[in-house]
Computed example of a mutant assay.
Amino acid sequence: MTGGRPGAPAPEAEVAAALHDVAGINGFFAVRVGGPDTGWQPIDRAYAGGLSHLVAAVAARHRSEELRVAVSIAHLGHAARLWSPVLACAVLHGIVPELSALQHSDRDATLRLPRAAGRYAAPLPRLADQLHDAVVTGRLEVLRAGLPAKVAPRLLDGNSASALVEAGRAVLVARPEARGRLVPLVERLLSTGRLAGTGTITGDDLSFRRRSCCLYYRAPAGAMCGDCGLADRP
C-alpha cells in the first residue's frame, strides 16, 4: 500500500498505478486513464440521459419489454463499475480515486478519467464515509434522478449494496491477503448512509442477502440472483 496524510491529494502517478493494478482483477475494475478524447461524454451528461444506450442494450440482450427491469439491471452493472475500482484502490493502495471528471463511453459501459487524481484514504470509520460520498452521494444519487423509468429507491440502494459486496468478493478472491482491511470496510459501508439496512453479510466469503430484488427474474430468461431478497419467500 502507498501512504500519505489521510485526505491529502495523492500524486497523479500513484493514482494511475493503483488504477492500473486493480484493473487486472476483472473487467468491472477497469477505468481507462488518458487517451483520445473522442467517443466519451461527461458522466453527468450520461446520467441526465439516464444511461439510455446502456438501458437499450440491456433490454435487447435480455429481451425485456418492461423498462424498469432494463433500468435496474443497467443501474446494477454501472454501480459495480463504480464500486469495484474505488473499493479496490482504497483497500489495496490506500487511495480513493477522484470521480468528478469521470467520463462514460458513447458505445458501451466503459468508464474513463482524462487524468488520474485521488486522495489518500482515511482510516475507518472515516474511510467508509469517503467511499460513500464518492460513489453513492457523488454518482449514484445523481444518476437516480435521470433514470427513464420509476424504480423503487430502496431497490436502487439494494443494487448499490449488492454491487459493493460483489466487488469485495472479487477482491477477496484475487487478493486474499487484504481480508483484514477489506471485510471491516465493507461491513462499515453497509451501515453507512443509503446503504444502511439494504442487506446482511451471511458468510466469511462475503456472501450476502439483500432485502430487495434487482428484477432480473422478470426478464424472459431471467432468474433470481444468489443474493436476492425474494429467494426465501413462498
Rank of each mutant, 00 (worst) to 15 (best):
M1R: 14
G4T: 09
G7P: 00
A8S: 15
E12A: 15
A13M: 05
V15T: 12
A16F: 00
A18K: 00
H20I: 08
A23P: 04
G27L: 05
A30C: 13
A30W: 03
V31M: 09
G35A: 09
G39F: 02
R45V: 12
L51F: 07
H53E: 13
A56V: 10
H62F: 11
H62R: 14
L82M: 11
L87W: 01
I95L: 12
A109V: 08
L111N: 08
A116W: 00
A122Q: 12
A122D: 12
A122I: 07
P125A: 05
R126S: 11
A134F: 05
A145I: 14
A145D: 12
G146M: 07
V151C: 07
P153W: 08
P153L: 08
P153T: 08
L156E: 01
D157E: 13
A161R: 01
E166R: 02
E166T: 13
V171I: 15
L172N: 12
V173S: 07
R179C: 02
G180C: 05
G193N: 07
A196M: 03
G199S: 04
D205I: 08
D205M: 11
R209G: 06
Y216A: 03
A219S: 15
P220N: 10
A221C: 13
A223Q: 14
M224N: 11
D227T: 10
G229D: 10
D232T: 12
R233C: 10
P234Y: 08
